[in-house]
């Protein structure tokens, strides 16, 4: 879907981005992770041509992005900024309608789509006539997301979209983010320097340092097969939590005992990570949770069974 091919960007003597290459598959969620100043934002902005690369090429759907006018390119790519970048002189409704107006949608179509998004993002319709400065940070960020999603672009670029939010609000938005069906269909490149966020939201992660990609792969690959000490050190804090997030239930499937599912317990898809499954025990009184795979297979497992499967899995990884 998106191919970044040996792209560099130099600002004077500073090699902000230095020979970066990666691919993003259709509907994949790629995270650009790294310390401050390592070139994440610069990389991201080259994809919608807010910055032109010094060398290298970028392709979307096999087409070099310099082949179309930047305005046209950008109208097909959603962009969410850290400080949301909402127009302070426009109401919420007008803010969301910016791209539809550029695309010359008629009014009813825009209104219908706006209403739909407001509902999906859990925003009351009464906010439509309000100005952004009258909203909370979390609400503004949701509007920023709605604005980027309104024309349903296939690609979404997000630069630390949740960076300005407090932890509680952020994990709430993370949950909504993962649940939002609109986003499941999209190819997303998201920049963050928050490792936990990267592990929670990313299908794959590109870990960057000083303008170069140090390692790219799934969270589990980075965690259990780091290419060097930099990667290992980068993931050292709260490692257990990262491991829970990196391991999917599907990874543990073979290690879980066969038990019939229970009617009352909450259910998880095998694609869920271990972290959210374990978290659910905190809130549910049930002894077990149901895990379903490929629609017909399912298992009921307890907290202890999950943890034991987890340790077996880790042992296995260590000996590989």
């Amino acid at each position: 879907m998106i191919k970044v091919d040996n792209v560099s960007k130099h600002f004077g003597g500073v090699k902000a981005v230095d020979g970066v290459s990666f691919d993003v598959a259709d509907q994949e969620n790629l995270i650009l992770l790294g310390t401050s100043g390592c070139g994440k934002t610069t990389t991201l902005k080259m994809i919608n041509r807010l910055i032109e690369p010094t060398s290298g090429a970028i392709y979307i759907d096999g087409k070099n992005i310099i082949e179309q006018p930047p305005e046209t390119l950008r109208r097909g790519i959603g962009y969410v900024l850290q400080n949301n970048g909402l127009f302070p002189h426009y109401t919420v409704a007008q803010n969301i309608a910016v791209v539809p107006n550029l695309l010359k949608w008629d009014k009813p179509k825009t209104e219908k789509r706006t209403a739909e998004l407001m509902e999906k993002l859990h925003l009351d319709a009464s906010y439509l006539d309000v100005y952004p400065n009258e909203l909370s940070g979390g609400q503004q960020q949701r509007i920023g997301l709605a604005r980027a999603l309104v024309s349903d672009p296939p690609v979404l670029l997000m630069d630390e979209p949740f960076g300005a939010l407090d932890n509680v609000t952020r994990s709430k938005i993370h949950a909504e983010f993962k649940a939002l069906d609109e986003l499941k269909r999209k190819t997303i490149i998201m920049v963050t320097h928050d490792v936990q966020e990267a592990f929670e939201l990313g299908d794959r992660i590109c870990l960057m340092n000083k303008g170069k990609i140090v390692q790219s792969g799934t969270p589990a690959q980075l965690l259990f097969n780091p290419v060097n000490d930099f990667v290992k050190d980068f993931l050292k804090h709260q490692r257990l939590q990262l491991e829970f997030k990196a391991i999917k239930l599907a990874d543990l499937w073979g290690l879980l005992p066969e038990l019939n599912k229970e009617a009352k317990a909450s259910s998880f898809n095998a694609g869920s990570n271990l972290w959210e499954t374990l978290e659910s025990f905190k809130f549910n009184n049930g002894e077990t949770v149901n895990i379903s795979k490929d629609q017909n297979e399912s298992k009921a497992v307890s907290f202890e069974q999950l943890m034991s499967a987890f340790y077996q899995y880790k042992n296995h990884q260590a000996h590989e």
Binding site: T72, Q82, G85, P88, V98
Partner: peptide, 11 residues
């Protein structure tokens, strides 16, 4: 940030 958002939306 507002200007950048405007550019990024394709204005």
């Amino acid at each position: 940030a507002v200007k950048e958002a405007a550019v990024a939306m394709g204005m």
